[in-house]
Amino acid sequence: MRWLRWVAALPALAPAAILIGILVALVGATSFTNFGWGFFGFHWDPPTDQWGIMVFLIGSFLTAVPALVFSMLIGIGIAVASATYLPGYLTRILDPFVDLLAGIPSVVYGIWAFVIVAPVFGSVLEPWLVMHVAFIPGFGPPTRTDGLGVLISIFILTLMALPITTLLIRDALRSVPRDLWESGLALGATRWEVVRRVAIPYGRRGIFSAAFLGFGRAFGETVAVAMVLGAATNLPKNVYDTGNTVAAQMFELLDSAIGGTGSPQILAALAEMALVLLGISLVVNVLGRRLIASLYTEQVQGL
């Protein structure tokens, strides 16, 4: 009856099979001979057969990295407040709001950002920034009046990465034994000193994993970015300018190509972009996951 056990074990391969299926399909859909290393060039102009994705790749990093930095800083702050400074009953009221951020679908974020937030950015925040902090490189004029562009994308991506970073950091801080907190305090350290010198070093693996997985989330986000970044094919001139990311560019290109026949050139270009995106997100996810000891982290969406 040994074979029965093997048959019973087969469904376990479902996720691996899907993952391998994706890789096979993508590699099958592409052939690097089409574009060669020119694929990593700066010019994207399909009608003249130029398929450089560098602008989008830079756009992805330009939006995801600041979003990650913000969501890590805010996430550490929230996690520390919830683990040390706030009384238990307040934590139980406030923590679910962060979980809720993870539950909002990205298209809802997108339409909210486009219709409600962008006008505020365009008419209030960005003119203010130009008035007061124009001396910082990238923050000088000109602005756009509609508020779409790099800045609002960073804002939305920060919100979308925030639940992942916050929850993983919170887990990391909660994994610090109570005795260790108390030992720090018993040595005459303030709560903040215990956080900085004991708890954060103790939970550093979890905090690094938060950074990797949060980056993965921000880097791969598609629809919300497609709605607010402005879909440009040139590099943004400043933080108020439009640009595009690999994921959003793929989405817009496919969406517009889908009605037609989908030329083999476009399909191959898309497959190569997908491979680049998949490669980067696999690397950060493997790194992030390896740092977490537990089987799966807390059951929250998107984690």
């Binding site: 996720p15 859909a29 998949l278 799966y296």
Partner: peptide, 26 residues
């Protein structure tokens, strides 16, 4: 099981656009 779990985790971390393109292509 460790490998299988890792692949499930990676699938969760895969951007939806890639799954979308995979579905379209396949």
């Amino acid at each position: 099981a460790g490998w299988v779990r890792m692949s499930a985790n990676l699938l969760v971390g895969t951007p939806s656009i890639i799954i979308g393109y995979f579905g379209y292509f396949t």
